[in-house]
Amino acid sequence: MIEGASWRRWIFFYIPLTAFIIALLFPFYWMLVTAVRPDRELYHPWNAPNYAPFWTLHPTLEHVRDLLTQTLFGTWMFNTMLISIAATAISLFCGLLAGYALSRLKFPFAGSLGTMIFITYLVPQTLLFIPLADIIRNFRLGDSPWALILTYPTFLIPFCTWLMMGYFKSIPKELEECARIDGATRWRAMVHIIFPIAVPGILSAGIFAFTLSWNEFIYALVFLSSPEQKTVPVGVTSELVRGDVFYWGELMAGALLGSIPVAFVYSFFVEHYVASLTGSVKG
């Protein structure tokens, strides 16, 4: 808290904080208002009488109904869910083992290998999708969930590995040594001692990976073409924008419903998640 006169607190704390919160939350509010605003208000000219852009007096669920009945939104949700969960599971599994190995085992080039994995994470997807598209075509995986389930880990595994590596390094190695003296093999020490302690780290890696794959756009846009294979971000933007016609109500309703699972996952694990960012085991 800032000490001193109240005007200082207002200038340096309350006003910037309020501005920040408004800037952060306004898009969500806009999304919500647009989703429930009836069409006749949506396409109102800005200088019409009684024009109220920031609220509506006639909220309606017609866009949501249209979205669920007139489009394949349900299928997109299912696709996105399936792909995100599968890609997250694969990446977590690999990231967990790789992170453990890089942080605990002594083998040649362990250090440089870790850095290389991190560098692969830095290659922009906007470049990587070109060669990947070729690979997907050669393996005839195009237009199927596998195209994404197998390509998302290309950026998720480095991410999870790096995160888990950092977390494992924060766990004192004596715990494991003690377990091994106590009669556990390295594998059992890892499973019984290290992984349970690393749960906050695993959860945050999982949440991040899930969110990244849920929101992923460019691979989904390039690798999937038929409407019934699409994910929410791609489906909403490609099927609800026809030529120069924007179905704003449905678009916003789609965005709103599409962000619910991510928000749910976050709120559910937020405590663990915060714990893992603020530190781990103390002696």
């Binding site: 003690c178 003296i181 106590d182 009669g183 302690i197 002696g283």
Partner: peptide
């Protein structure tokens, strides 16, 4: 390997398993 040497070790930072109760810590081995 350490497990087959029939030794027990006490570490400087105690190295207690933080997710287990005292009983489980002692019973683990």
């Amino acid at each position: 390997p350490p497990m087959d040497r029939d030794i027990a070790m006490v570490f400087q930072n105690y190295a207690l398993y933080p997710h287990m109760s005292v009983y489980d810590n002692m019973a683990f081995g």
